[in-house]
């Protein structure tokens, strides 16, 4: 039932929906869509980090490193914006590389607290040093993405729709890359490091090197999401990348589930819908932390494998009902 042409069809349909989606939304909803796209990259990169079994509390700050770096490169050196975004991502990866030396001497709970401390130190540096980070007020008037035309289409990046297309392409490419990485031997080794670290070590895998690699690559993508954010909203400050954002990333990941690459993405989309549609409609935005907190507890208690487990069950049911139809009646009542 899952032919190649069927798959291509599904992807084309998804692409068409993604292209048409912003035109069905209001201006403010289009803006939310841009943030959602950027957050998807952030949360997917966080999942890549958790593949090796380590949960960091510094990921939001690493995103901020990418944002600050890209903003500073354009402002101080006048680097072309798309190039500086890539450089920002590289800077985030580099910072992660430096941090990994002390951090990966720890595991589990200690790594969690250590990454939290490292992130807070970076945030305090942004706060403390007016040159070049701008202190508590951060950096303002960051260069926007320059306009450009492709054939008949004009992209004015003050328009959320244009920026949505741009970031969707970047995020889509990044997700594809992450998916390829996970499917590669390197990605399989990440899984081995998580579930069988002693065995992996015994077979000659340098566990720490792979943990570092996952951390650095994930941080690079997080930095890219930060750069996307910085050039859209045009200003960054230390408070954007605080513990609250980190808590949101955690919530999205936990509620979505981490077994698949689409798990955290589902979590992010579901909670954004809850947040922007349900809460905003009923004027309960003030209760957002409350709802998030409640959802977090409820999902840890009652849905420990996340929303993705529901999707997997649904897919399995579709597949098995298809099989039943193919194979006739004898499968239907195995007990009797």
């Amino acid at each position: 039932m899952r032919s190649v042409s069927g798959r291509v069809g599904i992807w084309l349909l998804l692409a068409a929906v993604l292209v048409l989606l912003p035109h069905a939304l209001s201006f403010s909803q289009q803006e939310i869509l841009v943030f959602l796209t950027i957050n998807i990259l952030l949360v997917a990169s966080y999942r890549l980090l958790t593949l090796t079994g380590e949960w960091s509390l510094g990921h939001a700050v690493i995103m901020g490193v990418g944002a600050y770096a890209s903003a500073l490169y354009t402002k101080e050196f006048g680097i072309f914006v798309p190039v500086s975004m890539v450089l920002g991502a590289c800077t985030a990866a580099l910072v992660a590389m430096i941090l990994s030396y002390p951090l990966f001497r720890m595991k589990g709970f200690y790594f969690l607290i250590g990454s939290f401390a490292a992130g807070e130190i970076i945030r305090l540096f942004w706060n403390r040093f007016r040159e070049p980070f701008g202190g508590p007020k951060g950096i303002k008037r960051i260069d926007p993405m320059p306009d450009f035309d492709i054939l008949v289409w004009q992209f004015d990046f003050f328009e959320p729709v244009s920026y949505y297309y741009f970031s969707a392409v970047v995020v889509g490419a990044s997700l594809w890359l992450m998916w390829r990485i996970e499917r590669s031997p390197v990605g399989l080794t990440f899984h081995a490091v998580h579930w069988q670290d002693k065995l992996a070590e015994a077979t000659g895998v340098n566990v720490r090197a792979y943990r570092t690699l996952a951390f650095v690559v994930a941080s690079g993508f997080a930095g890219l999401s930060g750069a996307l954010l910085a050039h859209y909203i045009g200003a960054v400050n230390p408070n954007i990348f605080d513990l609250e954002l980190m808590v949101f990333v955690l919530t999205w990941t936990i509620i979505g589930g981490t077994a698949t690459i689409y798990g955290p993405v589902i979590g992010c989309i579901a909670l954004t819908i809850v947040n922007e549609i349900v809460l905003r409609e009923f004027g309960l935005e003030q209760m957002r932390p409350f709802v998030y907190g409640l959802l977090m507890i409820v999902s840890v208690l009652f849905l420990p494998k996340g929303l993705e487990s529901l999707v997997q069950k649904g897919l399995a049911r579709i597949a098995s009902s298809g099989l039943d139809r193919d194979m006739g009646r004898e499968r239907e009542t195995p007990g009797s």
Partner: peptide, 10 residues
């Protein structure tokens, strides 16, 4: 830990 972060928000 995650639940306690949820409780913190509440």
């Amino acid at each position: 830990l995650v639940a306690s972060i949820g409780f913190l928000l509440i």
